[in-house]
């Protein structure tokens, strides 16, 4: 794994930065300088939505090199709230409970590591949305 190559991707991996075409509205992740859909060069950086829903998924049981420790793992196609489709691992979710329509949010995880002595690659994965409700006081005493 190349440390310089991993560093270059940080904004797109850590913060879901993409680009938006000001002409046709299409979103790209990672960013595109020229819109592949309409040819416009009028694109701006835009952070993608952090939440979305699962459209389809698979369970990887024969992983490529570097991902063996994590198997079996779920990879899902997620439709973010801004409409962007993104492919990512789904974590904190059992294979038995994953289903299309599941509400998901981005989480920050280890992606892979370059052996025991190499760099650790971090980035986004998605997990079921952590729901909370302050109406129900967790501890009403006092």
């Amino acid at each position: 794994m190349s440390a310089p190559a991993v560093r270059r991707e940080i904004p797109y991996r850590y913060r879901l930065m993409g680009t938006k075409c000001l002409n046709c509205g299409a979103l790209f992740h990672p960013p595109q300088r020229i819109c592949p859909k309409c040819g416009s060069k009028d694109l701006v950086e835009e952070e993608l939505a952090w939440r979305g829903r699962l459209v389809a998924y698979t369970v990887i049981r024969r992983p490529p090199k570097g991902y063996e420790d994590y198997k079996p793992y779920i990879v899902g196609l997620i439709e973010l709230k801004d409409g962007k489709l993104i492919l990512a691992q789904i974590v904190d979710c059992d294979i038995e409970e994953v289903r299309p329509g599941l509400k998901l949010e981005a989480t920050f995880r280890r992606i892979r590591e370059d052996g025991k002595s190499g760099i650790i690659e971090y980035g986004y994965k998605f997990r079921p949305v952590i729901e909370w409700n302050w109406q129900k006081k967790p501890n009403p005493e006092k």
């Binding site: 990672p30 389809a56 698979t58 024969r62 490529p64 991902y67 990879v75 196609l77 691992q89 892979r112």
Partner: peptide, 21 residues
């Protein structure tokens, strides 16, 4: 490489998502 491969998916996995869709 940096985004689709990064997710840990395989060719069979990509085909699996196509199949599901």
């Amino acid at each position: 490489s940096e985004y689709v491969v990064y997710s840990g998916i395989t060719i069979a996995g990509l085909n699996a998502i196509q199949t599901q869709l």
